[in-house]
Amino acid sequence: MSLQGIKVVDVHAHPFRESTTPESPVSFLRKLSLSVIPEMFSSLEGIEKHQPYPGSNMWIQILLRQMAAYYSCEEDLTAIVDKRNQKAKDYQAYTKELFQDVNLVGAIMDFGYPQPPINHAEFEGMTGARIWEISRIEPIMVSLAEMNISFDDFISRYRKRLQDDLSDNQVVGLKTIIAYRSGLEVLDMDRQAAEKDYETFVQDNRATAKAFRDYCFHIAMEACTEADKFMHIHTGIGDGEVVMTKASPSFLLDTLRKEKYKDTKVHLVHGGYPWMEEAAFIVSILPNVYMDISLQNPFTGHGVERVISQVLELAPFDKVMYGSDAFTVPEMNWMGVRLFIQCFERVLNDWVEKDYMSVEKAQFIGEMILYRNFEKIYNITV
């Protein structure tokens, strides 16, 4: 059974800017890392042959090895980056080449990162793939708070901005990164407490301001319900700012079970990694909640195989979608697909060998997660 050549839709990634300057080995490693600390990769001097680069992990090792094979060059960082820079002189052609190589035909992108936002049409033209957006609520909250308006005026304008964004055909939903600010233990709406915390948020838009953030979260959920579009919620780890003690998707369960949200379509971004079993349980009991396998793919490297297997221990096959969380260079998007397919094939073929299912059913399940579920869940044909 093989998934090679199957079309792929990535349901969570970020756009990236066209690079106008060649990468150095150090700068390229930095762009491959989830770390936001510049010192993570500072010097490659004194590296012995076959020694892993300081700060690198299995994700980077696998990517460099597969890039060397793709370029037909030595598995050496300098040689790989040199080949890469030659191809990337025409950045658009190189990006399209990588997307086409893995048949990556579409993606839902969070244009909330990087800032200032990248132009949608230009990015779509650079990749050659169809691109849809999710509108991140936090930049909207910040831009309105900077106007120093009253709480009532803020709420009125905030609701209107969400409604306007959701009316755009290119926008498939909203997204929140509340897990980075106050955590996923979202409490009931408390207008009085929210108004008090709003004053704190105006002074410091990175402040916890929990009651205010929770209030805005609920308004976003209501807006998605009314528009019949998806609420994307960052769950699990991310960069170093995430509130780790409140990042598990289990903290969302009480909110998602509320009667007012029984028809709200929710997408658990990153599938709650490393609490993916909890996300898998949630999507197995709540009919309108779905999850993707992004960030853990590709950034756990060889662990992607384990993650896929664990998620599918409990999650229904039709509730899981492919994702990458790629965010800086097209090689991330490319490697996300390659690594996922390689790992998924091993999982599916193991199930076939154990006589859990036929080859044909395993093939169909692979297609479901790579693109069929997206088309059905989002009602979009690619």
Rank of each mutant, 00 (worst) to 15 (best):
P139M: 00
L144F: 01
E375N: 05
F201N: 01
Y261Q: 01
S167T: 15
P54T: 11
R181V: 08
E199A: 14
A211M: 09
R17V: 04
F28Y: 10
E241D: 13
K83I: 00
Y290D: 00
E278P: 06
E195W: 05
V202K: 08
N85K: 11
M335W: 04
F111W: 15
T381M: 14
M126W: 03
I178H: 07
I6F: 03
H232I: 09
P54Y: 14
P316M: 02
Q51H: 10
K196C: 13
D168V: 14
H218F: 07
I282K: 01
I219V: 02
Q66N: 12
D190W: 15
M335K: 06
Q163P: 15
P114D: 00
S358I: 02
A69K: 15
P249I: 08
V11E: 03
P316Q: 05
P114A: 01
M1F: 04
V269C: 05
D228E: 13
L370E: 02
D82T: 07
P249Y: 13
H267V: 01
W334Q: 03
S72L: 11
L44Y: 10
L268K: 08
D101R: 13
V202Q: 06
L312T: 08
D152N: 11
I293Q: 02
F344N: 10
K196N: 03
L63W: 05
M147F: 04
A223Y: 03
E367L: 01
E367W: 00
R257H: 07
L253S: 06
T95L: 04
H234G: 09
D325V: 09
Y180R: 08
H270T: 01
H218S: 05
V142A: 00
M221E: 07
S250H: 12
L29S: 08
G303N: 10
E367C: 00
L286H: 07
E345Y: 08
R213H: 04
N119G: 07
L166T: 07
L339W: 12
D204E: 07
M221N: 00
V171T: 10
S56A: 14
M40E: 14
K7N: 08
F41V: 01
S167R: 13
L144H: 01
F16A: 10
E195I: 04
L144K: 00
L312D: 07
T208V: 14
Q100C: 13
Y180M: 05
W132R: 11
P298S: 04
N373F: 00
P287A: 02
Q342E: 09
D190V: 12
F123W: 15
D239I: 04
F281D: 09
G5K: 03
P15Q: 02
W59A: 10
G271T: 05
S167A: 11
C343E: 09
I131A: 14
P249L: 12
D318Y: 00
N85V: 01
I237A: 15
S33D: 15
K83Y: 03
H267T: 01
S43A: 06
E23A: 13
A211C: 10
Y356G: 01
E222N: 15
H14R: 05
I282P: 09
F28K: 15
E18P: 05
A79I: 14
I60L: 09
Q363I: 06
R84W: 05
D318W: 01
L98I: 02
T235I: 10
I137V: 07
T255N: 10
P139W: 00
K7Q: 12
